[in-house]
Amino acid sequence: MSVDLATVKRVAHLARIAVTEDDARRMEGELNAILGFVEQLSEVDVEGVEPMTSVMPMAMKKREDVVTDGSKAEDIVANAPETTDHFFLVPKVVE
């Protein structure tokens, strides 16, 4: 399988990365090189093989349903580009 320029732009938008026409053209070649490389997986017989979900055989650990952390609003917003009163500020979403 390979990607064309329109697909590159669609994927870039899905990934929320702005691309120029030049970026998209360069990426088209690079992505096709990588997709060409991974194409060899199609020759592997995977009939009846379970996909890996956990590399170590283990049951998911479960915690007690209790509060162990919190009240850290100051810490959580400390690194944000724009905040007010412990809220993250973003451009207007709803008119």
């Binding site: 997986l41 199609s42 592997v44 093989v49 379970e50 996909p51 890996m52 979900t53």
Partner: peptide
């Protein structure tokens, strides 16, 4: 498919 191949590698 890649995750199935991963099972085979392991």
């Amino acid at each position: 498919r890649a995750q199935k191949v991963r099972t085979l590698i392991k």
